[in-house]
Design a protein around this nucleic acid. Sequence first.
DNA 1: TCCCTTCGTTTACAGATGTAATCTTAATTG
DNA 2: CAATTAAGATTACATCTGTAAACGAAGGGA
Lengths: 148, 148
Amino acid sequence: MATTELAITISDAEWRVMRIVWTLGQADSRTIIDLLEQQHDWKAPTIKTLIGRLVKKGALGTTKNGRQFIYTPLIKEQAAMDGALLNELDQMCAMHRGTSLVHVLEQTELSKTDVQNLIDCLAQKLPTAPDMVACDCLPNGCEGSCEP
Amino acid sequence: MATTELAITISDAEWRVMRIVWTLGQADSRTIIDLLEQQHDWKAPTIKTLIGRLVKKGALGTTKNGRQFIYTPLIKEQAAMDGALLNELDQMCAMHRGTSLVHVLEQTELSKTDVQNLIDCLAQKLPTAPDMVACDCLPNGCEGSCEP
DNA sequence: TCCCTTCGTTTACAGATGTAATCTTAATTG
DNA sequence: CAATTAAGATTACATCTGTAAACGAAGGGA
């Protein structure tokens, strides 16, 4: 069987690097360093370390270009985003996720298209949505301890 | 001025402890340990460490009850959830957040009430929603590098 | 009163993360 | 060809996190 494929974890700082490469499609270290030095107070070696860790983690691939490397994303941006958010949500109380998502939507700037897509998605869920989602914080269900 | 109030960060393992205390409203260490030993392969000392760190961080308060302590949450569950999710979202490309939220909603079990609240929230945003949200991954905007 | 249980505290230790200096090597330039 | 520069690799180090053993004090039971 294939190598055990544990989801790649990208740290906050590493996320900045990935965003550059995802947006540009590919980039050499000079480009990444120049861009990140503008956005943060990071020194070049710091950024090199982050790039190195991302390559080791398998989040970035390298192609030799003369003396340098060209870095390309090996994982999809949207998939990484979805995974990180679902991961975070999954560790929270199932009963309160809905409310939290309302708060998140309220505070997030969304395009008309996004809003429409979200509405469509919800409209589709509405008919089959359960009357309530139980709290899953305790081993034996909520046993009346938690009120919505 | 008051003590600098840096938002409290709760790690994954600590989150498990908080969920118990949030759900029960308050709990002594015996209760927390018993419940978590059922859910995980953690030893009692591990859980004690987590409780201790949460107290030090200011996420849990203590009240002496004879020889023991009663732990109570000092931060709100919903606020912690909202904060963690917004934090995660905020470090991602603004242009792609909407799509990610669609994926998250698709994969999250929501009650009818949640779905309705979400729809209401979106209906309210729709009129004023911008036609598009720009990518904010590069210092000077996207300069055509990123297509939606 | 003396031992055992229990609680909370202290110490331990490896891996991840943020942050960066140093070094090696190859290329650039005068 | 020598000196400088730039790229990637190696090393550094404090903090946070996951995971836990060990320890000291306080109570409870024999």
